[in-house]
């Protein structure tokens, strides 16, 4: 018995084996256990927020859903970890990476990006927006694929013609970008306006939809 053996034993207890094969086996085991946890949590209704990330032409998108429906879509530039931390505060800390609940949203977004879908038919949970902002968010899906409205037009359509600036705020805080098409709201002078996913993404989305520039 010697000190070197003792140190080795301590290290071995504290630090899992660095063996790559063992690491891969552990990772696979943990992945299987995670899937089991997702199922058990869903069976007990404990997955109050279930999320996944998908690839899109505009970068990685976070899709988060409650049992009521899709509650948040976030661009990578919003920082998915920050968005999830904010959902833990605002909705529930019972948040799991669990793709099953957002299968429908992921599928419809894939169809949209592939040019096979022009509007979304998904249960939406709008609890992250309220009051006038919510009225704006509820109006936006009525702007058809390929069209745009100005902030002033949206203000008029929601019954508050003077609330042009508030429409801008509502679009900038839309919890469900792309699915709720705030990218179709542009400035009256034809300039693009701000966008959660960046103005480049907004320009690209409008070009993809074939929206005619306003002048």
């Amino acid at each position: 018995m010697n000190d070197a053996l003792d140190d080795d034993l301590m290290d071995a207890l504290r630090i899992p084996s660095a063996d790559a094969e063992a690491d891969a086996a552990s990772a696979a085991r943990l992945a299987a256990l995670h899937t089991r946890l997702e199922r058990a949590a869903a069976a007990e209704g404990l997955d109050e927020v279930a999320y996944r990330e998908i690839d899109s032409p505009y970068g990685s998108l976070l899709l988060a859903a409650t049992p009521a429906g899709l509650v948040r879509v976030a661009f990578a530039r919003e920082d998915h970890d920050r968005v999830l931390a904010s959902l833990a505060e605002k909705l529930s800390p019972r948040i799991l990476r669990s793709p099953a609940r957002t299968d429908g949203a992921a599928h419809q977004l894939d169809e949209y990006f592939a040019g096979r879908r022009r509007s979304f038919e998904l249960p939406l949970d709008l609890r992250l927006t309220a009051g006038f902002r919510r009225a704006v968010v509820e109006h936006l899906p009525r702007i058809p694929f390929g069209s745009t409205e100005s902030y002033a037009e949206v203000a008029l359509a929601t019954g508050s013609p003077k609330a042009v600036r508030a429409v801008g705020t509502a679009c900038a805080t839309n919890p469900l970008p792309i699915v709720v098409p705030c990218h179709r709201v542009v400035r009256a002078d034809g300039t693009i306006g701000q966008y959660l996913g960046g103005t480049e993404a907004k320009t690209a989305l409008l070009a993809f939809e074939g929206a005619r520039p306003r002048d």
Partner: peptide
């Protein structure tokens, strides 16, 4: 810093709990 999403807890401590 407020409560973390539970997923962060699973990722951070899952391997140790398995050991």
């Amino acid at each position: 810093l407020g409560i973390q999403p539970f997923e962060v807890i699973v990722q951070r401590h899952g391997p140790t709990v398995l050991r």
